[in-house]
């Protein structure tokens, strides 16, 4: 790991000032992606701004008909939260299948979203559920937030403060895990929203998380796994690596989407 200066602001405003003042400064939340990457010297930020002592960044609450989760809320807290379990059980399930128990004690929802790893779980939930990512500057729809591999719409001094999820009628997440890394080889989040259907895929897209509009249209007409029969996702534009070809991932998307619809329907 290369040398860096460590900062520990107490407020979001202080953190944003540190980012604005120091070029190439990086925020650290739980650190479970950034620290390994710094150890490998793939990242070498000269300034690290730690969010762990910033006030009002964690916590889970219902705000009207939406679930609000603070950016520094850990995966373990989301997975174990009775509020999330009641409001969007698929989201609690998703948080509980990230990494392993010790990783879930440190990793945070804000960190995961800001990193936008193409195999991370939360981006699929945000896109399928139509979440809003709230920052110190504005509110971003999930649609406009994710901008390709490890890339988001966040500006250099912008900080995620919380994420709000409108409540779906039904939802489910099905993840096919890489056995070694526990990341999603493919993960599909399906949500039946009050006037819409969201189907989002992680792990497979060469540009990161994406929606499958053909599946959404079919499920809008009839929310049953049978509605997906005969439909498929082209292998074009999907990841291929030693763990699976693009064709294999395309096949998995169809299989997992059908399973997710069944799970959402309680089957």
């Amino acid at each position: 790991m290369y040398e860096f200066k460590f900062h520990r602001p107490a407020t979001v405003r202080q953190a944003a000032n540190l980012l604005a003042k120091n070029e190439d400064a990086k925020l650290v939340a739980g650190g479970h992606t950034l620290i390994p990457v710094m150890k490998q010297r793939l990242a070498s930020p000269p300034h690290l701004v730690d969010l762990s002592k910033v006030e009002n960044l964690s916590g889970i609450e219902m705000k009207g008909r939406a679930l609000s989760i603070g950016a520094m809320t850990t995966h373990a807290d989301v997975a174990g939260s009775p509020i999330v379990g009641e409001a969007i059980p698929a989201l609690a399930y998703l948080a509980g299948v990230i990494g392993d128990p010790a990783v879930r004690h440190r990793g945070t929802i804000g960190g995961s979203l800001a990193n936008n790893d193409p195999t991370a779980d939360y981006p699929a939930a945000c896109l399928a559920l139509g979440a809003t990512i709230v920052t110190n500057k504005r509110r971003l729809k999930a649609e406009e937030f994710f901008a390709g591999l490890f890339t988001t719409a966040l500006e250099s001094d912008e900080i995620i403060t919380r994420v709000t999820f409108p409540l779906p009628k039904k939802a489910a997440y099905v993840k096919f895990r890489n056995q070694a890394s526990r990341y999603a080889l493919v993960g599909v989040f399906v949500a039946r929203r009050p006037s819409d259907v969201g189907v989002a895929v992680t792990g497979a897209g060469a540009d990161g998380v994406f929606r499958v509009t053909a599946f959404e249209e079919a499920l809008k007409k009839r929310f049953a796994s049978k509605a997906l029969e005969g439909l498929s996702v082209p292998a074009d534009g999907l990841n291929a690596d030693i763990h699976g070809s693009a064709e294999y991932r395309a096949h998995l998307i169809g299989v997992l989407a059908a399973r997710a619809v069944d799970a959402a329907n309680g089957k």
């Binding site: 650190g31 479970h32 390994p36 730690d50 010790a102 004690h105």
Partner: peptide, 28 residues
Amino acid sequence: DTSQCGACVVHVDGKAVKSCTTLAVMVD
């Protein structure tokens, strides 16, 4: 040393954490 094996697990405020993936300054 890559947060996978768990040989470095300690408790931080009572919760299991991988100490190879946590900076000492972060648990001040």
